[in-house]
């Protein structure tokens, strides 16, 4: 446990430092995960590049058709943001169950994504919103869909020295709603046994599903979208029966592990129940909007 900490003033400087000290360099933002991993001797970087204070990366901005979250946006900022109280409630619901207030006041959503933990709570909601990431690196800027970004437990498609600068997702069409559910042994301070995010859009004048995006965390090596379950629902009447079937299909698609928190079998069962419930919550929310 011996490293240098660098405090670049700009993204370019940060990338330069990362290149200079590769492969023993690592970015750190809120540090809520990095410092624990260092203390547990899971990682041993020689150079930490502090990106927490980089300017302009903590803003939540709204355009006519999209939202952009700076990668350094804190959970607590998401949680308390007025724009996310309506159809984007999935963001508030997920942000508000990460650690305690103390963690949410400093931990960044970019950090959570880059960690690529299978149980990261903020990844499923962003998957359900089909979010993309803006990345800056030595070769310039690029964008990548979040679903293509996380490639395995703790692994992403970031190239060395690349840095995620923001997360973008489109606003939802009319008659859409989202929901996030999490199960753990306690009601707070939990690493998810399973978490589920759902985003449902109904057809303009029917109760059929026009678009469905589901995302499941902690039930596979990475958070994932159960495409069969999503596809099954398109054009189906939204309701108990179709949601239950979607839950069943999602449970089939996951590949959970057994660990000290829960068995694989229990996790699989939860996926079925929680997918159904998350969709039901979405439906209720759309009906509330309709009224």
């Amino acid at each position: 446990m011996s490293f240098d900490l660098h405090r670049p003033a700009t993204v370019t400087e940060a990338i330069d430092l990362a290149q200079r000290f590769a492969p023993t360099a690592r970015y750190v933002a809120g540090g809520t995960d990095t410092v624990i991993q260092i203390n547990r001797k899971k990682i041993d970087p020689a150079h930490l590049i502090d990106v927490a204070c980089l300017p302009g990366l903590s803003e939540i901005t709204e355009t006519t058709d999209a939202f952009t979250l700076g990668a350094l946006t804190k959970y607590r900022s998401v949680e308390t943001h007025p724009a996310f109280r309506g159809d984007l409630r999935v963001l508030v619901e997920a942000a508000s169950v990460v650690g305690g207030h103390q963690v949410r006041n400093i931990a960044t959503i970019g950090g959570n994504i880059v960690n690529a933990s299978p149980a990261a709570d903020f990844v499923p909601p962003l998957l359900a919103l089909d979010a993309s990431l803006d990345i800056t690196g030595p070769q310039g800027r690029r964008s990548v869909a979040l679903r293509d970004f996380i490639v395995g437990p703790g692994r992403t498609n970031l190239s060395p020295a690349e840095i995620v600068t923001s997360i973008r997702f489109a606003k939802l069409p009319a008659r859409s709603a989202t929901a996030f559910l999490k199960e753990g042994r306690r009601r707070a301070m939990e690493i998810s046994i399973v978490c589920v995010a759902a985003c449902l859009t109904l057809e303009a004048s029917t109760s059929r599903c026009a678009s469905v995006r589901l995302a499941i965390g902690a039930a596979s090596p990475t958070a994932f979208r159960p495409e069969q379950a999503e596809g099954y629902l398109i054009g189906k009447p939204a309701g108990k029966e179709s949601f239950a079937e979607a839950g069943r299909l999602a449970a089939e698609a996951c590949s959970p592990i057994s660990d000290v928190r829960a068995s694989a079998g229990y996790r699989r069962g939860l996926v079925a129940v929680m997918v159904e419930r998350a969709l039901t919550t979405c439906l209720q929310r759309i009906r509330e909007q309709d009224q």
Binding site: G31, N39, D50
Partner: peptide, 23 residues
């Protein structure tokens, strides 16, 4: 020392954080 118990909480620029895992 892992931000699980909160006894190390202080205010950083007014906001509660776990001082045990902040460099």
């Amino acid at each position: 020392l892992e931000a699980e118990c909160g006894v190390c909480t202080v205010l950083l620029d007014g906001k509660a954080i776990n001082s045990c895992i902040l460099l």
